[in-house]
Nucleic acid binder design. Structure first.
Length: 436
RNA sequence: GGCCCCGUCGUCCAGAGGCCUAGGACGCUGGGUUUUCAACCCAGAAACGCCGGUUCGAAUCCGGUCGGGGCUGCCA
């Protein structure tokens, strides 16, 4: 069994193509088959190396690998259509010589029989039948003698020995043309599988008009690859038993193209983000720390100082539990960085009370006389002072939170204070105590 | 317009004639926990597009209809 994907480098790797790649990859891996990646760049105008790079990079980022094709090589050369024009032209001219194609205004058209039917079995849709009456003669070589997609793609599938063509449903109606070409090449027909399309929230084919729907855009938003991988698996397929969170291994074990749904799926960012949060929480300590530090450095566009990193490490676990994406990190930890610190005045007004002031003053004094400033020590001081003054946690804690983090929303208070450190905490509390 | 595909909660999926007074997940609403925010727990609202047929029995099979989508390029 040999499957392939053939992305056109006319844009970054799109979520829809990534899902198609994923299903091809899963099926190949599930059946000990081969997976091939080639680049369909017959459209010289719209193709670019930058996009090609993006596609390859993001396939890898998703954890997909391939056995033959672009970058990894194989017996068929570059696996780029732009370098195989001679081959396509050779085939096209043979068709022309055999009377299977004819010239029209310079372009070469493949002659579709007037009568007859093309039938094939589609793995997700069952019996398909097209009346050749409805299929027009189609261009296989443009006036500039460059091959079109139909020709190049079909010749490649034949030359590379593809046995199962699984692609988007948008090409379903082109399949009769491809079958005609394969027959003309006197080659065996592969199996066909037309995967349901991915839609945007408006129920239309996912595309640029839905915003940036590239894989790299989601990566940039702080989505981790395992989460996107898992989420995409669920678009048109499920492993059964209501299982929703699963890894690559399980996906490979359970995956079967025969169980893929024929109906389109809407790409729902909300569920992706939820799943991403689940995955982030599950990240191993070292993996999370790496992403944690990198994400902050990306946000502030500079390297972190050692002091900052030491502070950040103390809060990382608390932050890990509170993320939807990696990009949410900086907002939660910026009070720990050596950056200008500011207290949100609206938040301050809503928590600043006389009781709170007194509480902070007393706590600050006790903080000053502690030596170790350990987490449990901080908690003990803050809780016992609450009892001393007989005030509610909210009164004492919220004012302190705003004073040291700048806002009413932050990681857990004791951890935040612990991470910030004794000197900084005392200084910030001092700034907010009115009669000091 | 023509050809083709599709049709279970708002969304993703379960359901392959009786186990369905339709199940899970996201989201949403209410409640609990709580120092904020999350997380977590509990509860709730929420769907078989419609009409016929087959059958003792249909979300499941068939037909029609309506609705949505794709293709209809010298794009892929």
């Amino acid at each position: 069994m040999k499957l392939r994907i053939a992305p056109s480098p006319t844009g970054n790797l799109h979520i829809g193509n990534a899902r198609t790649a994923l299903f091809n990859w899963l099926y190949a891996r599930a059946n000990n088959g081969e997976f091939l990646v080639r680049i369909d760049d017959t459209d010289k105008e719209r193709s670019s190396e930058e996009y090609e790079k993006n596609i390859i990079e993001n396939l890898k980022w998703l954890g997909l690998d391939w056995d033959e094709g672009i970058e990894v090589g194989g017996s068929e050369g570059s696996y780029k259509q732009s370098s195989r024009f001679d081959r396509y032209i050779e085939v096209a001219e043979e068709f022309e010589n055999n009377g299977l194609a004819y010239r029209e205004e310079g372009a070469l058209r493949f002659k579709v029989p007037e009568e007859g039917e093309i039938k094939f079995q589609d793995i997700v849709r069952g019996s398909m039948s097209f009346n050749l009456n409805d299929v027009e003669d189609f261009v296989i070589l443009r006036s500039d003698n460059s091959p079109t997609y139909h020709l190049a793609s079909t010749v490649d599938d034949v030359d590379y020995g593809i046995t199962l063509v699984a692609r988007g449903e948008d090409i379903l109606s082109s399949t009769p043309k491809h079958i005609l070409l394969i027959n003309a090449l006197q080659a065996p027909l592969p199996d066909f599988c037309h995967l349901p399309l991915l839609f945007g929230p408006d129920g239309k084919k996912l595309s640029k008009r839905h915003g940036d729907t590239s894989v790299s855009a989601y990566k940039d938003k702080g989505v981790i690859s395992e989460a996107l991988f898992n989420y995409m698996c669920l678009l048109g397929w499920a492993p059964g038993n209501d299982l929703e969170i699963f890894d690559k291994q399980i996906a490979i074990e359970k995956f079967d193209l025969n169980n893929v749904l024929p109906n389109p799926a809407i790409f729902d960012t909300k569920k992706l983000l939820w799943m991403n949060g689940q995955y982030i929480r599950d990240l191993k300590d070292g993996d999370f720390e790496k992403s944690f530090i990198e994400s902050i450095q990306d946000s502030i566009s500079r390297e972190l100082f050692e002091q900052e990193i030491n502070r950040l490490k103390k809060i990382k676990h608390a932050v890990q539990e509170r993320l939807e994406t990696l990009n949410d990190i900086n907002e939660q930890v910026k009070f720990l960085l050596d950056e200008p610190f500011e207290v949100n005045s609206k938040d301050w007004e809503s928590v600043n009370t006389n009781e709170g002031q007194e509480y902070m003053k007393n706590v600050r004094n006790k903080f000053m006389s502690t030596k170790s400033f350990k987490l449990n020590e901080i908690e003990e001081i803050m809780r016992s002072e609450l009892e001393q003054l007989n005030i509610k946690p909210k009164i004492g804690f919220q004012i302190t939170r705003v004073a040291i983090t700048g806002t009413k929303i932050s990681p857990p208070l004791f951890e935040s204070i612990y991470a910030l450190g004794k000197e900084n905490t005392i200084a910030r509390m001092g700034e907010s105590i009115e009669d000091l």
